[in-house]
């Protein structure tokens, strides 16, 4: 939440402004003209830090997870254990609610608010025909989500937005712990490191991890780093 260092980042924001999508409500598609880059911006036209970029980043993560569970629940693997489809259905519902929650908070600032169709994510790298494959994929996505929220909180400038994100962050961590238990009993703490701290990742680190699932190049260059 420090505002001291935004000026140097603001320069980068202006230089890359042709690629900026967030808040450009007159863009008909979530695809900018210059290159196929989705670059959320955390600064307004005068270089002041705003939360739109980080909230859009969180929104994209919830879209990704919702799309994943929608796909899994629509065609669940045949070898699910009793109770597991109910878990996956709950996870789907939670992610759909998180997606619509962030979309509602963003309103017209949602990066795809005027897009003809939402992004279509690709999950071909996962094996979704077995319970082991589904839970391994869920573990991977939920761990990314939890670490992303842990790293995003400090990048917000408005306390109300921090509280909004914190309400869903711990539910993501609970999801992640469940997925770990489904993969391997007693592995709930696999991402917890020194000092007993769960993982935290920057938007740049998260974009590298989720790029394989997203059909457009992601850039965190215009997001705040402090």
């Amino acid at each position: 939440m420090q505002r001291r260092s935004f000026f140097k980042v603001a320069g980068a924001s202006v230089a890359a402004s042709t690629l900026v999508l967030a808040g450009c409500s007159d863009d008909p598609e979530p695809t900018p003209v210059a290159e196929n880059v989705l670059a959320f911006s955390g600064f307004n036209s005068t270089g002041q830090p705003i939360d739109d970029g980080i909230l859009n980043y969180a929104y994209l993560l919830t879209q990704l997870e919702a799309a994943f569970y929608l796909k899994v629940v629509a065609a669940p693997p045949a070898d699910l254990q009793p109770g597991e489809l109910a878990y996956l259905t709950d996870l789907r519902d939670h992610e759909l609610i998180h997606r619509e929650y962030l979309k509602a908070i963003l309103g017209s600032k949602a990066y795809d608010s005027s897009a003809a169709a939402p992004l279509e994510f690709t999950f071909t790298s996962f094996t979704l025909t077995t319970r082991a494959g589904v839970w391994a994929a869920a573990q991977q996505l939920e761990d990314i989500g939890a670490a992303a929220y842990n790293g995003a909180g400090k990048l917000l400038t408005v306390t109300a937005n921090l509280l909004a994100l914190a309400k869903i962050a711990s539910v993501e961590s609970r999801h992640a712990a469940l997925a770990h238990e489904m993969v391997q009993a007693d592995s709930f703490g696999a991402t917890i490191g020194a000092d007993g701290l769960d993982d935290a990742k920057t938007p740049t680190e998260v974009f590298v991890l989720i790029q394989p699932f997203v059909p457009i190049k992601l850039s965190a260059a215009n997001l705040p780093t402090t």
């Binding site: 999801h175 712990a177 703490g189 701290l197």
Partner: peptide, 24 residues
């Protein structure tokens, strides 16, 4: 904790660990 990025992020990471404990 919003005035101090280090403490804020630490608290969020602690929060996340507690959530994993609770789920387990």
């Amino acid at each position: 904790l919003v005035q101090d990025n280090y403490t804020l992020q630490t608290a969020l990471q602690l929060h996340s660990t507690e959530a994993r404990h609770a789920a387990r």
